[in-house]
Simulated assay, not measured.
Amino acid sequence: MAVLALVLFGAFLLLAGVARICIQYRRTGDTGIRRARAAGPAHAWARAALATASLLVGIATPVAELVGVLDAVPVLDRPALHAAGAVLALAGIGAVILAQNAMGASWRNDVDPTERTALITHGPFRLVRNPIYTAALTWATGLALLVPNPLALPGLLLLLFGLELQVRYVEEPYLRRTHGPSYEEYAARTGRFLPGLGRTPRTRPA
């Protein structure tokens, strides 16, 4: 299972990363890659948490099993759970690609406060505000089930922590500043990561 987890990690990087950048450049002349300075401590912490979590779940966890440093947690070391993990990881990769495509020219790898991109509310964004992140969590959960050793759960929790920081303290404030009432209305009717959960109350005029 560790080898399969590494293959699925590589597939994620290739399809949701390299391929996405190539498609974006071909369609728009812009790679969509932004390396702006972190917009405050929360943004810096989010970047660090997401990078560390990806390395933990995608590389450290399966490598630790391959070299025999860590064994799987017995209660989770079940063929049915491994199979479910493979399905979740594949589904997560596919869902990330679909959500990225729905963003079109607005896709970016990170927030650049100096830019104004369109507010995307169609496709999977009709159901949740952050379908790419939901799909990435699905993918990471699948990898953790494929290789359920003691590194997997901390890596998964760190990924969730990083995404919460990124969304709540970086992206949502940016979208409110950029799109104002349009985003407030969208956020009031659409869940953050899951349908119906994490909707924000409408701001009432003073």
Rank of each mutant, 00 (worst) to 15 (best):
P154E: 05
Y174F: 10
G155A: 02
E172Q: 13
R129M: 01
H179W: 09
L165I: 13
R177K: 14
R168S: 12
L143Q: 10
R176W: 03
T134N: 10
P173C: 05
T134L: 10
N130A: 03
P148D: 04
L165F: 03
P181I: 11
L137A: 14
L157Y: 00
Y133K: 06
R126Q: 12
E171W: 11
G162W: 12
L160I: 14
L159T: 07
V147I: 08
L145N: 01
L158A: 04
A152Y: 02
L145S: 04
L160Q: 14
A136V: 15
H179G: 00
P148C: 04
R177S: 05
L137M: 13
E164D: 14
P148R: 04
P131E: 05
G162H: 08
A144P: 04
R177G: 11
L146V: 03
N149L: 02
V147K: 00
Q166A: 03
Y169T: 15
L163M: 15
T138Q: 07
P131C: 00
R177C: 05
L156F: 10
A144G: 01
V147R: 03
L153K: 02
A152Q: 11
I132E: 00
V147Q: 10
L145D: 04
L157G: 09
E172F: 10
L127V: 15
A140Q: 06
T141K: 13
Y169D: 15
E172N: 05
R176T: 12
P131M: 03
I132M: 10
V170W: 06
A136E: 09
E164C: 15
N130H: 13
W139R: 04
G155V: 01
T138V: 15
Y133M: 06
L175Y: 08
F161I: 10
V147C: 12
W139A: 08
